[in-house]
């Protein structure tokens, strides 16, 4: 049966509308944004490096077009997105296989949820992502 009610689906606002949501919801949103960002980078990377098939001149033109401080900062953002997406992906893989969420319990107020149960894992994962991002930043900007 088709609904004739006025539509009220939140859309993208449901991902980003924040302020009253939990930590894991922001990880969910960030995971999607970084995933889309990495996909965009991957497509651009294929496009730029495919210039090599048109000869050395085309390759050098393409490389000079994507050099400079702005692109370096952009590459660092790609690395930071990768660091987050990778370690958070491990957390999600563990959780989605039923680990780290606990077993069913008697719900007694105040309720303990699987979200709280996996929170230490989420924090640990964010710390690892943070360390990787800092290490990557040092490597990008100070070790050349």
């Amino acid at each position: 049966m088709e609904s004739h009610a006025h539509p009220n689906r939140l859309g993208i606002r449901g991902w980003v509308g924040g302020g009253r949501w939990g930590f894991e919801r922001y990880l969910y949103t960030l995971h999607r944004i970084t995933g889309l960002g990495l996909l965009t980078y991957f497509l651009l990377h294929i496009f730029v490096t495919s210039a090599r098939v048109f000869g050395k001149g085309a390759w050098e033109t393409a490389m000079s077009a994507v050099s400079g401080p702005a692109f370096k900062a952009g590459e660092y953002l790609v690395f930071a997105a990768f660091a987050f997406h990778a370690v958070n992906g491990v957390r999600l893989a563990l959780i989605e296989l039923g680990f780290a969420v606990g077993r069913p319990i008697e719900p007694i107020y105040p309720y303990a949820t699987s979200v709280g149960r996996q929170r230490p894992l989420a924090i640990a994962v964010m710390l690892i992502a943070g360390v990787l991002a800092v290490w990557g930043g040092y490597n990008f900007f100070f070790m050349d």
Partner: peptide, 28 residues
């Protein structure tokens, strides 16, 4: 399609924890 935003379990007024049920279903 669930990627554990966990909000369903946070707002559940009865402590049912649907996010846990969904992850256990995936394990099964």
């Amino acid at each position: 399609r669930c990627h554990f935003a966990g909000e369903c379990s946070q707002v559940c007024p009865k402590g049912v924890d649907p996010a846990k049920a969904i992850q256990m279903m995936k394990q099964d």
